[in-house]
């Protein structure tokens, strides 16, 4: 599904990714952990083709959806418009548009924010924006969902909601790559965690193989 071989990326002479190789064969949730500046967001952006690698090889089979750390909802559109705008561009007739709207309503309902459909992003809380961002990225029917710091700035209760929400998306067969520095969150949600440090892979582990994965990962932070 995802093949990354010897990936290298530099910004202004500073190596952000150095010789990173990852292979993901089956769907599931892959967590990318690491301190700030370790290269996890860059790797995610390379997977979405928002950045290009300076060296190495990257292949991502399937359609990708992307959730931004700061949501990047379109502020002049309502929640519903945010969801249906892109799919409607490819809609051939009114029927397709109605189907898109129906799907958007269902997605919002599943995420518990159907009542906010006609509101603008500025009137939503952080958690609600996060849900809208997730709903919007799901509207492109992604095979792989890439999430950049989905819990950043959220309180504990909302973080738990995000865990439930993303797990339910994962259960529908969508593969996920989630970049986060929140080890508690990542260990709760991921099947596999890769810890990046200074642009290199420091740990690559299956979560179920460790009784205390958070402490195991914390050792590599120092």
């Amino acid at each position: 599904m995802i093949k990354i071989r010897n990936a290298c990326k530099c910004y202004g002479g500073i190596k952000v990714l150095e010789d990173v190789s990852i292979r993901v064969e089956k769907s599931g949730i892959l967590g990318l952990a690491g301190p700030s500046g370790s290269g996890k967001s860059t790797l995610l952006r390379c997977l979405q083709k928002l950045e290009t690698l300076d060296g190495g090889f990257l292949e991502c089979n399937g359609k990708t959806g992307f959730m931004f750390q700061d949501f990047q909802l379109f502020p002049h559109m309502t929640v519903l418009e945010n969801l249906v705008y892109a799919p409607n561009l490819n809609a051939k007739n009114v029927q397709c548009r109605q189907n898109n709207e129906k799907r958007a309503r269902e997605t919002l309902k599943n995420l518990g924010i159907e009542s906010k459909m006609q509101e603008y992003p500025r009137s939503l809380s952080g958690g609600q924006k996060q849900r809208v961002a997730l709903a919007r990225s799901l509207m492109v029917n992604p095979d792989i969902l890439l999430c950049d710091e989905p819990t950043s700035g959220l309180d504990v209760a909302t973080t738990m909601d995000v865990v439930v929400m993303l797990k339910s998306v994962g259960e529908t067969g969508v593969a996920m790559v989630i970049a986060s520095h929140d080890l508690d969150f990542l260990t709760k949600i991921s099947d596999r965690i890769i810890l990046l440090k200074d642009g290199k892979i420091a740990v690559d582990m299956e979560t179920k193989n460790h009784s205390d994965p958070v402490n195991h990962l914390k050792k590599y932070y120092a």
Partner: peptide
């Protein structure tokens, strides 16, 4: 405008 607005449009496949 935040660069992310352009990137969000790109990731959603908006021409």
């Amino acid at each position: 405008l935040p660069k992310g607005q352009f990137e969000a449009a790109r990731t959603l496949g908006i021409p």
